[in-house]
Design a binder for these strands. Structure first.
Lengths: 341, 341
DNA sequence: CTGTTAGCGCCTTCAC
DNA sequence: GTGAAGGCGCTAACAG
């Protein structure tokens, strides 16, 4: 019964239910919230009145009374259409949804790519439209983080921030890039490779530095700084950069790529140069992107536990909503061995 | 000043501002909402008190008083990884955001791919957490639509529903698949193609039927029913299906594909069969997906005005929130001529 | 133009 | 266990 889609004939409230059930509004409220101050008997009476009247709890009244909207905002600051070939966020989001399930809190995704959208989102946070914010794409530099801190509501960052300038203010969850990079480096080290190269992502990205550090820790002199280069995250960058690298350093026998897409480009460059993978040159990617498994040869790579990251972000958000102090969770990455190394 | 991230020392309310400014709460409220019942002078006084106290409007109180949360839910029932896979939704979302800009309403994306998430979303709609819902992926059959109708709040559907069973209840915006298909068909007809084939998407998808109808209207006998086949939306489906089709009907001189991804598969199949495009066989895609422009040869295709679709959906939602009756807007598709036909 | 007075729908002490 | 009463923060109708 699509009752009154216009004119909204005045919604059913707990007062109506109370009248119908012959009890007070307080009792209805208690029954709804399953308080054990109410007889099972009374609860049933109320329940019947609810179905008879078609009562649905109004979230606004409840939010005002309880002080919580029972929603968690998931903030995405990158344009959605630019993320289309990056399943990362989808996975994290799935984790957030799972982590919130059963808590009574609903995740609402808030996209704020433009400056005006960001301002809108911030205003809405300040106004307490949501009880907490999970920020999927935190970046240093951005003044957004400062504004979020000023908004004075619980915030969880997905991703590591260099120097942790907001430690003690925001909760953080991230996968340890240094340790992930160590796994990649160990793979080529135990395979006896000695002339290792690194084709990293942009130098200003925090993950890049961490990954390089992990490589260096394990490989030492096997990773000559001359063979460490930076490029864009995509495969075109990996292709041209690797091609140049092979000319300058023909003896390279392993390539640690900053991302799977870069690795894909590297594979193409190696093939063009007539090198066999992994016989002549081993290649290790990063991310376990969908393209890694279907590359030829299938790409050995490092997987981040994205879904778990989201799940833990949700958990941290709920904790802070309940008054806990912010804290940081670091997750482990995992080597996914395939054929390329 | 990251003031009190815990313990929330009691937020500043209009009462505090009123006291500070030496006016009544009502006046503060009016000043905030820029009512012209307030002197510019008084407004300034209030404004100063606001900055001095650091007041931020509480959305919950306002929502309860006004009866609107000033948010529009954007419902996505497909798994988000597909959202990020398919730029379609991203574009529509961008349009929604644009259409809502300046209205004071904030779009919140609600993902409901699993059954439990759907139930959660519906409950939240019933409770009036949002003022309207824009449903990006409506499908007949789904009982979700019935539940939405029962939730009794304004709903806008993005996409055509066969037989419009909810006409007069939901607003709808869609691009006319029939007319789009006619454009594709005319392209190959004027090019003098006589043995046209159609490699469509799944038969149970409403768009599929419409597109076929458009093709038939224009091509008549040139599109022999024997050369009309169905497959999945992706390129693998296009590849195998087209390959089979070419064996059964070697004389085919044009292929109308149900999507650009299907078209991409068709291109591969044609190349494998040694046919040149467009000399031997013309190919027209559908959607103007990003891959269309970079295909070889670049794909002639049909573009849906996705951003505008979103913008109009937002507009329809706002209209209905303000009491207007639901209505339907049909947008025009556009031929994007490239080299494949 | 501004202040006073009621609510919006729910939850929560405080009595009984 | 249940009811009565007050309040969450804001807006709106009614006086002045």
């Amino acid at each position: 019964m699509p009752q009154g889609r216009r004119g909204a004939p005045r919604a059913v409230t707990i007062a109506d239910v109370a009248r119908e059930a012959g009890v007070s509004r307080a009792t209805v409220s208690r029954a709804i919230n399953d308080s054990d101050l109410v007889t099972a008997e009374t609860k049933r009476t109320v329940q019947e009145a609810i179905t008879r009247t078609g009562f649905v709890m109004n979230a606004r009244g409840r939010a005002l009374a309880t002080g919580r909207a029972e929603t968690v905002g998931v903030l995405i600051t990158e344009p959605l259409d630019e993320l289309f070939d990056d399943p990362t966020y989808g996975r994290v989001l799935r984790g957030v949804a799972e982590g919130l399930l059963g808590s009574g809190f609903l995740p609402v995704i808030i996209q704020a790519s433009s400056e005006s959208e960001r301002a809108l989102a911030l205003r809405s946070f300040g106004r307490r439209s949501v009880d907490a914010v999970i920020h999927l794409t935190p970046y240093r530099g951005s003044d957004l983080l400062g504004s979020l801190a000023g908004a004075g509501l619980p915030v969880v960052l997905c991703g590591q921030l260099v120097d942790s300038p907001y430690e003690g203010i925001f909760s953080t969850v991230y996968s340890d890039d240094v340790r992930g990079a160590r796994l990649a480096a160990q793979r080529v080290a135990t395979a006896g490779r000695h002339q290792v190269a690194a084709v990293l992502g942009p130098a200003d990205n925090p993950a890049t530095g961490d990954r390089l550090r992990g490589y260096e820790e394990v490989l030492g002199a096997r990773l000559d700084p001359a063979r460490v280069v930076h490029t864009r995250w995509d495969s075109a960058g990996g292709l041209t950069t690797t091609a140049r690298l092979l000319v300058a350093h023909p003896g390279i026998d392993a390539i640690l790529a900053g991302s799977d897409r870069i690795a894909l480009g590297a594979l193409a460059a190696l093939q063009a140069a007539g090198r066999r993978v992994p016989e002549d040159v081993a290649v290790v990617g990063f991310d376990d992107h969908a393209i890694a498994a279907s590359a030829s040869p299938p790409l050995t790579t490092i997987a981040q536990p994205l879904v778990e990251e989201g799940r833990i972000a949700a958990q941290l958000a709920l904790e802070m909503i309940n008054g806990a102090d912010p804290r940081t969770e670091v997750l482990d990455m995992r080597l996914v061995p395939r054929l390329s190394a």
